[in-house]
Design a protein around this nucleic acid. Structure first.
Length: 269
DNA sequence: GGCGCATGCTCAG
DNA sequence: TGAGCCTGCGCCC
């Protein structure tokens, strides 16, 4: 589920599994053959995520930049890699060393998998808005932008240049939790709402990194115990079902080319 | 097993 | 505005 939390988890996982190790790289599918050849045999030195973008930094100043898009996935395994299945764009592997086992990771379906220089990478950072999961995030860059905009707040939350890492699930859920009408323009939000959205999204994304899944319902609004899939959200993909808080049927519409879900009563204009 | 949809974004027109 | 990417999942049979 590639919203921002997924990419930050991946950055951590790559650092833990392959960090400091000499990596074998290949592109069984062939679409990244040249790039894979250029990092093959290099050491993974750094990993980083900003919004939905992931960078793997190899020795010699080479970055592999990955954007998963809608379908992209990384599959991890231990030991020697199995024969590739399907369209494996990039395979990274490290043999056993010291007390660490061999590990491998396969990338499939990504929108972007390319080599970056420092300058390429900087250009991506420059066009992205603040990412609540990054230490260097500037909340004011988000709140100022929201307060100046005539666009609906639900559209703003999907713009990666406004806030990086929020996707369709987090936008719907954060607006519900804030009790905000998704169509309200950024400049028309009540005082303090933009700050509250930032704070809540930061907490939700952090929770997502911890859990490895998106859970937005508050404990009081769901059954106790393990969170079942159908109890994880307030409104996302719950069209027609009763709002967990007030019972009003959840509404759906397309906004910013994506399905938007909200409670017409709890999030009244 | 098959179908349709999905967390996202880019590019052609 | 629509197609493309080309995987994973839930759902239905």
């Amino acid at each position: 589920m590639p919203e921002g939390h997924t990419l930050h988890r991946l950055a951590r996982r790559f650092a833990a599994d392959l960090g400091g190790r000499v990596v074998r790289a290949g592109s069984p599918q062939g679409r990244f053959a040249d790039g894979a050849a250029l990092v093959d045999g290099r050491t993974l030195e750094r990993t980083e995520a900003h919004g939905k973008h992931l960078w793997l930094g190899f020795s010699g100043g080479r970055w592999v930049h990955v954007h998963l898009g809608l379908y992209g996935t990384w599959t991890f395994g231990d030991g020697e890699p199995e024969p590739p299945r399907g369209q494996v764009r990039l395979r990274l592997a490290a043999g056993p060393d010291g007390d660490r086992d061999g590990v491998w990771a396969d990338l499939r379906g990504a929108t972007a998998c390319e080599l970056h220089t420092d300058a390429d990478k900087d250009a991506v950072h420059a066009r992205l808005g603040p990412d609540p999961l990054r230490r260097d995030a500037d909340p004011a860059a988000f709140t100022d932008r929201v307060r100046r905009s005539r666009a609906p707040v639900a559209g703003l939350l999907m713009k990666q240049e406004v806030i990086a890492g929020v996707g369709n699930v987090y936008r719907a859920e954060a607006l519900f939790r804030a009790g905000l009408d998704p169509y309200r323009p950024g400049r028309g939000l009540p005082a303090g709402s933009a700050e509250e959205l930032w704070t809540d999204l930061s907490a939700l994304l952090r929770d997502g990194v911890r859990r490895g899944r998106i859970v937005t319902t508050r404990p009081a609004d769901r059954p106790r115990g393990t969170v079942r899939r159908e109890d994880a959200h307030y409104v996302y993909r719950r069209t027609g079902q009763g709002c967990r808080v007030c019972g009003t049927p959840v509404a759906a519409a397309v906004l910013a080319t994506r399905n938007l879900y909200w409670c017409p009563a709890c999030q009244a204009a």
